[in-house]
Design a protein around this nucleic acid. Structure first.
Lengths: 359, 359
DNA sequence: CATTTTTGTTGGATCGATTCAAATTTCTCC
DNA sequence: GGAGAAATTTGAATCGATCCAACAAAAATG
C-alpha cells in the first residue's frame, strides 16, 4: 500500500504537501496539529495527499525550534551510560524519575560520556529542558558543565556545599547516627567504617584532617553521624579505622584486608553504601567469618538487592524513588527558584546485624 | 562572577552577541563551532562578549534543525518507562545498547507511554535518528506506529513474521531443543511448559490449534523446539500441558496451580523466560517441592539474576548484550537495507536441573 | 608594484515547522 | 439582497542556529 519508500533523496516536507494539495503552509500545518480548525473537506484532501506522497508527519526537529520546549529531561552522570541500568541505587532512582516523567508524558535522555570532552559536548548538545545530575565521583565538574547550559538542574546526592544550586539529598547525619546507635545498642564497641570518597580519586585510610577538608559533605556528614552517636556510647572514635573506597569491589576488598590485618578486629562494620556492605558480607563469609555472629554489617541506601542477599542486609533506607520523583518534578515544574530538600532516612533492621559476640 | 542569570525574559541568542561584538552572525557561529577559522583577536572578543552577556552557547535546538541528525537513538516499548530499569532482560539489553552508544557518543532516548495515544505521540515526536523496539506485548502496534515515522528501526525479540522490517532475534527452535534435550537426557519424561504469550492478552492452557495460529513466532518456535526434541525421546508431546502467561507473577502462579492440580505431576518444567523460571522455583519451594530433586526447572534468556537465585538456574542463554550492541549499531550505521539477524543460544547448566526422580 | 595565494569575514539562504493578524469566504438573519 | 457575524484560509514572521559562495584584506610571489 501507500507509496514506496523510494526517492530517499529528499524527505517530504510539510511545504511539499501544502503545494501539492493547493493550500498554504498554515493550513497544512493545521491539518496535523489542530485538525479541528480546518474544514473537513480540505483536511481530508491534505491528508490524502500526505498519505500518497509518503509524508512522515510534521518533523519534530522543526516543531521543536518553534515550540521552544523539548519536553524531556536529561539525566547526567560521569559514569558510563550502562551505570543507569546496572547500579541498583541508580535503577531505583531512575524508576522514580520515570514515574514522574510517565505521568506528564515527558521523555528521558540519558547523558554521560567516557571522557571529559565528550561529556562536555554531550551536556552542551543534549536536547532537554533541564537536567538531573547524579553527583558521584567528579560531581563538581558535572555541575560546572551543566551550569553553563543555563538550564534548570537538580543535583542528587549532592556531595558538596554549594547553596546556589538546587539539590535533593538525605539527612546524612541522622542516617549515620541511626546506623551507629543500632549497632551500639546491640553491644558493639569495636567498629570499622567503609567510607565513600571524601575528595576525588582517592582510596585508603582516612585521617581526621582529611575529614575536615572533605569536598563531599555527604560522606563527611555520615561519618559525623557515626562518630557523634558512638561518642555518646563511650566509644573512642579516634581509634576507629575509616577506609575510603570507590564503592566497588576492588577498593572495598583492599579496605577490608587493611582493616582486618590489624590486631583488634572490629565486630561491626559501618558501610556507607549497600553495595559496599554486600561486598563486605561476601568477603567476610569467604574468610570464614559469620555475619552477623562474628561481624555485624550495616549498609546505607536501602536498595532492593539488600533484602535479597544472604543474610538480608540491615541498612539505612533512603526514600530513593521519592527523591527521583521529586527531582523530576522540580525540573518539570521549574519556576526559577533554587530549591534544596533534605529527605529523612530510616533504619531497616534485617539479618546482617546481631548482638556483639562475647569477647 | 559573570553576569547574573536575571532577565529571564529573553534568552540571549547567537545573533545578539554577534551584534554586540560587531561581527556577522556567520563569524559568531564560527567562534563556537569552528574556532580555528576565526582570527584569534576576534575570537577572544566574541567570547568575552558572550561571557559578559551570559550566553549559554549555541542552542542545540537551532543546531539540530540545520544539522539534520539528532545523534541519539530511541528505545521504545509498550511497557512503562520503568521497565528499562527494572526488568533484568531489558537491563542487560540496555547495557549492550549503551555500550555501542557510548562508543560513538550517541545518546539514548527512552520512549514509552501509559496509553496508546500518548505512545503514538511520543513516537511521533521523539528526537531520534532511529528506533530500537522491544517487541513484547503489543509489539505489532509499536512497529506500526514506528513505521509511520519513516526512520530506521530494528525490532528486538521479534514476535511475528514480517520480513519487511529489520530485526534481531535468536534461534528459538535451537534454544527449545537444547533445553528439552538437557532434561530428557537427565531422564525426565513428564513435562510442563510455562509459555510466553502466543497472541495478545491471553493466558491459560494452550491448544495445538492456538499454536498453529500463533501471532508471536518466537513463542511458537520455542515450543516447536521443545516438542521436536522430546518427540525424539519418545515423549508424547500432546499430553504436555502448555500454559500461556504474561511473564509475571500472577499469571505464572495461576499456570503452576493449574499444572500441579492435575494427577500426573511433571518432573520438569520448561519455562520460556528466566523470570518465569525463577517465579516457578519460588512457588515450588514454597509448596515444599525441592528443586531439582523433585522438579527440575530450565529457563530461557540467561539473565544475570539467574546465577544468583537459589538454586542457580539452568537456562538457555541468549547473547543479550551482543544483541543490544548490534541493534544499536544497525541504527547508527544505517545504510537503508533491511537486515535480519539470528543469534545462537547456548545451554548453561546450573543447579536447578537434575536427574529425574525415581518414580 | 602588480599579481596571485592565503586567510578571514560577510550576509543571504536554509533547515521544517508554528503562529497570528489580516484577508477572504461562508453563513445567518432580517 | 445585503449587513454583520462566524468560520476558514493565507502568508509573512519567527524559532536559533549552520553553511557557503562571494568578497575583502593581508601576505606571498615574481
Amino acid at each position: 500500500m501507500a507509496s514506496l519508500i523510494e526517492g530517499q533523496a529528499r524527505p517530504i516536507r510539510l511545504a511539499d504537501i501544502a503545494k501539492a494539495a493547493g493550500v498554504s503552509h498554515g493550513t497544512a500545518s493545521n491539518v496535523f496539529s489542530r485538525p479541528e480548525v480546518v474544514r473537513a473537506e480540505v483536511r481530508e484532501r491534505v491528508r490524502a495527499v500526505a498519505e500518497a506522497m509518503g509524508y512522515a508527519g510534521p518533523d519534530p526537529k522543526g516543531r521543536l525550534l518553534r515550540a521552544g520546549k523539548v519536553n524531556a529531561i536529561g539525566v547526567g552522570t560521569t559514569e558510563p551510560l550502562s551505570y543507569f541500568f546496572e547500579d541498583p541505587f541508580a535503577r531505583v532512582m531512575m524508576a522514580g524519575i520515570s514515574e514522574a516523567c510517565d505521568a506528564t508524558g515527558a521523555g528521558i535522555a540519558l547523558v554521560s560520556a567516557a571522557n571529559q570532552e565528550k561529556l562536555a559536548w554531550n551536556i552542551q548538545s543534549a536536547l532537554v529542558d533541564g537536567f538531573i545530575l547524579f553527583c558521584i565521583e567528579g560531581g563538581s565538574r558535572l555541575v560546572e558543565l551543566t551550569r553553563e547550559r543555563r538550564l534548570p538542574f537538580v543535583a542528587l546526592e549532592l556531595g558538596f556545599h554549594d547553596e546556589t544550586i538546587s539539590a535533593i539529598g538525605v539527612d546524612n547525619i541522622a542516617g549515620g547516627r541511626l546506623a551507629a546507635r543500632h549497632l551500639a545498642e546491640l553491644g558493639h564497641r569495636r567498629f570499622a567504617v567503609l567510607s565513600l570518597t571524601l575528595g576525588d580519586d582517592r582510596t585508603g585510610f582516612v585521617t581526621p584532617e582529611m575529614v575536615r577538608s572533605a569536598v563531599y559533605t555527604g560522606t563527611r556528614d555520615r561519618l559525623a553521624g557515626y562518630f557523634e552517636e558512638l561518642s555518646g556510647f563511650g566509644v573512642d572514635t579516634k581509634s576507629i579505622p575509616v577506609f575510603e573506597t570507590e564503592n566497588e569491589q576492588r577498593s572495598t576488598w583492599a579496605g577490608l584486608e587493611a582493616i582486618f590485618a590489624g590486631g583488634e578486629r572490629p565486630t561491626a562494620i559501618l558501610a556507607m553504601s549497600d553495595r559496599m556492605a554486600m561486598i563486605a558480607i561476601d568477603w567476610l563469609t569467604a574468610r570464614g567469618l559469620k555475619v552477623p555472629e562474628d561481624v555485624s554489617v550495616v549498609g546505607f541506601d536501602g536498595v532492593p538487592d539488600g533484602a535479597l542477599c544472604d543474610p538480608p542486609l540491615t541498612t539505612i533506607a533512603q526514600p530513593i524513588t521519592e527523591i527521583g520523583r521529586r527531582a523530576a518534578r522540580m525540573i518539570l515544574d521549574y519556576d526559577g527558584a533554587v530549591r534544596r530538600e533534605t529527605m529523612g532516612v530510616e533504619l531497616v533492621v534485617r539479618a546482617s546485624t546481631g548482638p556483639a559476640p562475647i569477647s
